[in-house]
Design a protein around this nucleic acid. Structure first.
Lengths: 240, 240, 240, 240
DNA sequence: CATGAATGAGACTTCATTCAT
DNA sequence: TATGAATGAAGTCTCATTCAT
């Protein structure tokens, strides 16, 4: 039942993966451009210059596509976080409270700049988090999504702990603080959509202020936050 | 030629309004139970034991129903805020910083407890705020929704200003702080849906912690926050 | 089973007739303004400031309204013809070929000017004659329509015969000529709708030329036709 | 990567065209049998033993079907005219007045015999010309219909001019005469539907008489018309 | 692997008609 | 008589999915 792993096969597998990727790319674009009802299989196929039936060779159905989209978003966010950590590492003398705070701040900045860096990714998250019903019925929910999600949260929490250890802020449950930070930040970013009602809502600095408020609320020193602000911004926006 | 302009007429108007209400009630339930695509005219009619056509005597179309739902939610939230303000007024000596802080804290609590007090209302807000695309196309968006929304925000902001004036917290732009507070709170509340992934997310105290963090970040005294916590909880949960 | 014909009853009957008339008037307007699908019972009732159900006290159904509309058109056309004959009578010395020709010409003019004088009536005729299917299913077709129609045709034919007898034109089957004349005239008038494709089609003189061609084809003298043209025009347009 | 661009490909295209044809055929039948409201997508699908959705792969909507039907009718009429001209060419010595008159007469005969040769096509024209409102909203009216229509009219006019040049009839504006002829002929043919009221109306010779009347009215010699009548009839009826 | 024809349920909306009040 | 709430079938169109080629 196993297929011979020779060159031809590999080439085939690779082409398959590339096609899957193309499909997901286009699906994501349609999704955020035209909303849920804008993503139809027929439109997707037309956009890809494919036949409708062909898509079903790559995905068992529409909801599988949606699940894959969600996973991709989570994965990319994880990669962003890693890259950001690396970039932040060298910006301050290692081991200092400031270094730990900057690393934490940049990690938050990764999410903060998501609507700018990957608007479609962010919109998908909005869709996912906003729907009272699950996007994809729980039974068919790909369980592999969960670890990715956990890893993300874990990464944040680790940085909070590191910052604490470095004396940058007071004690407190790191996981809970992470979740508060993430939820709050997402909530504020999400308000941007309502900018047509209240222009202030579309304001990009609203999120930055929130993050500083919260970190200050967690015990971080306002002066220290001021000191790293420019570097944090630069590093976060420098991400792909 | 003249029609009796009293009892009979009035009765008819009243029954009409009652029917409208019933329709909205049921629509709301379907919406939050089954999501956007779960609310179909046919299902709504079946649930109401009505013929499909009958609904169109009460609302010109599906989007009119959605708009009405949104307006109702905003209106009720406004009423909640007023009642909460009244209730909070007597709980502390008037004019003291604590009184101002409590009033502010209870106002936030109104939103904080919304998922418990009016789960369907909250879910509708989630839906509204979460959809990247507008629920109802902007052109047909009932403009009367906007003032209600503005009034809500304004009410919050006024309380922030009052608290500041009473010395309960440091200076800062009240409107921007209101928006941050609201967005952040909504974001954290919204995470509860994800409780199946991460049980902590369903935790009711997460929101409370966030609010205290933020108010502290705005300059409020942690001790004062501790002092009013129980009263604030009680007053907010006592709302209908 | 007969109702007492006293004053009150009569008044009631009269009011009933007046209401029927109002309904027909409005129905006709909707019909020609918005086409078949533009005439709906609900719209009709709204326009009349009536309840839907009320209309069913005056007409058993929609098709009864349509039938009544058709009858009214035919009746009014008959009245027009009578008035026109009367008016034409005095314009030329009685008994002369010219008098007979003028009377005939004016009778034709009655139909020729119908689109101007009663646009809605004419459009209804277009609708009736143009639909391959009967407008109103034959079974429910009011048989009283037929006599009116026959009378109309008969009136025309009589004038053709009179004109022949007076030497104004050559022999030929009067009924057949009438039908040819009527059909041809209607056909040309009907083309006006296509004026947006070919402006000439909207030209009012096209019909006049056709009538003269045909009468000439029937044997009438071109000079005589020229001689009565202005009077014929004037008399036909003077009708209500 | 290249797909076989021959047999298979062609076969599919051909089948597609054939299906389109089948749809149009059936639509035309329903249309003329049951009128505008008799042509519904559901009925059409049922008649074709198709699913409703399938039709939308061939036509973007109902009005596209109607437009296509109209175009087909106009196109076929144009082809008929060409064939008839060819057939008439040899029947009389070239260049004689009689040859020109015959060619003209046969061209008219093409339309005259349309109700017999292509009853459904004629009924569609009745529908099109008879509806006061446009069948298909002007904006979505396929502009390619117009040239076909113009060409048709132009063909008639050219023959009238040719006949005049050959001395067969007196001077007069050819285009206007064409339009009169066409409109009048259509009007008389259209009366046939009313045969149930007045049997004479169903009479096939009524149209022939009209045409001769009109051509005579245009100045043609009655004797010449008599001389070509049989040939004209034969040639016109010989068309497919 | 790819195609695209076909399915069929289901979406929203309209409308002539009935009937309790 | 008049009202207007209610019916329910029918309208057009969409869409995820299947399957023979």
């Amino acid at each position: 039942m196993t297929t011979p792993p020779d060159a031809a096969q590999l080439g085939r597998e690779e082409r398959r993966a590339a096609t899957r990727e193309r499909i997901l790319e286009t699906a994501m674009r349609l999704l955020v451009e035209q909303g849920w009802e804008g993503l139809t299989i027929a439109k997707l196929a037309r956009e890809l210059d494919y036949a409708v039936g062909a898509l079903y060779r790559y995905f068992p159905g529409k909801s599988a596509i949606l699940t894959s989209l969600e996973r991709r978003v989570v994965e990319r966010l994880g990669q962003d976080l890693e890259r950001a950590a690396e970039a932040a590492r060298g910006a301050r003398p290692e081991g200092t409270p400031e270094a730990a705070l900057l690393e934490l701040r940049v990690a938050v900045g990764v999410y903060e700049t998501l609507p700018l860096r990957r608007p479609t990714d962010f919109k998908l998250l909005m869709l996912s988090l906003g729907e009272p019903r699950e996007l994809v019925a729980s039974e068919e929910m790909d369980p592999s999504l969960l670890p990715g999600f956990r890893a993300l949260i874990g990464g944040f929490a680790a940085r909070l702990i590191a910052a604490t250890a470095a004396g940058a802020r007071t004690e407190g449950n790191a996981l809970r603080r992470t979740l508060r930070l993430w939820g709050a930040l997402h909530g504020v970013l999400q308000l941007r959509k309502q900018g047509r009602f209240e222009p202030t809502l579309a304001d990009a600095e609203l999120a930055e202020e929130l993050v500083e408020d919260l970190l200050a609320g967690f015990g971080a020193d306002r002066a220290a936050l001021d000191g790293i602000r420019d570097d944090a911004r630069r590093l976060a926006h420098a991400l792909p």
